[in-house]
Write a protein that binds this DNA or RNA. Structure first.
Lengths: 154, 154
DNA sequence: GTTAATGCAAACGGTTTGCAGGGGT
DNA sequence: ACCCCTGCAAACCGTTTGCATTAAC
């Protein structure tokens, strides 16, 4: 019984976590917000708002796409995730807040996280001071992923 | 007279250049294409299609915005310029084909070119091979430009 | 009970497209 | 003369917004 209790608590961990965040921010913890939160935490990729909406169809068949947009934007403002307005196309969302960069497969459009702490900590070029003060750097690597390299000839 | 002839030839240099490009590509050299080309070569910033359209209003009051879009896309395909689908917002166009990166001022939205050959030629992190083959790298630096640093307090 | 969040639908802004007429070759 | 390119208008797609209803507090 103690064991089941533990499991219950564990599976409610995300609920408690989000509840705390919402309380601090003074916003309501709604069913939709919780499910979007869980979906984002579970996501191993970089989903668009539409993708999250699609994935929630089974659990929340009546959820509206604009609610997903609104919620993801709220989460971005709260610092729960990052709005990624990357190269072209739609806006993506990334629940991974660790410092990292992105690889884009030119063919299949897949996006992979790239960690490169040496680069993050390296100094910027000389002339940069004359431009301004850099607060963040984000690197985009473009090429062909392993899978596309194996499959295709282009 | 010889002098005027030289000047004439000189000022037609862009015309000749574009004419050659169009001939090779098998497309027509139209008035609109020439003016958009000249505007892009003259541009020291990273104009949007709308900006180019605006700048051409005096010279070509009847040019349509979609012609600018079509022409810039054509130029991008011909390699005359680069379509920059950068962080959020609209698509920008860059006639500077030298390898370079971009700095974004978070406040005034200004974009500056950043040259960093040492970085361009440096090797990528170890694990990158397991992801795929990198063909290009583009760095985005975000921060406050000199002007905004001086003006503001944020 | 009060207030904020949701769902719906319609607006929005940047970009693209279908079409007929006009200009370059 | 031929056909591509242009201008016009309307479609398009991702995203945002106004509003009445619903649910969280």
């Amino acid at each position: 019984m103690a064991k089941e209790m533990d499991m219950s608590i564990t599976s409610d961990g995300q609920f408690d976590h989000l509840k705390r965040i919402c309380n601090e921010a003074g916003i309501k913890l709604t069913h939709q917000r919780l499910e979007i939160f869980k979906e984002m935490v579970a996501a191993k990729d970089h989903p668009s708002a539409e993708a999250i909406h699609r994935r929630l169809q089974k659990k929340l068949p009546t959820i509206a796409l604009d609610t997903v947009y609104r919620t993801l934007t709220t989460f971005d403002e709260l610092g729960i995730l990052r709005k990624l307005r990357l190269t072209g196309e739609r806006t993506l969302f990334d629940a991974n807040l660790d410092r990292h960069h992105h690889f884009f497969c030119t063919r299949c459009k897949k996006i992979e996280d790239v960690y490169w702490p040496e680069f993050d900590n390296s100094s910027l070029p000389e002339g940069i001071g004359s431009i301004g003060k850099i607060r963040a750097r984000h690197l985009e690597l473009h090429g062909l992923c392993k899978k596309c390299l194996a499959e295709g000839n282009e």
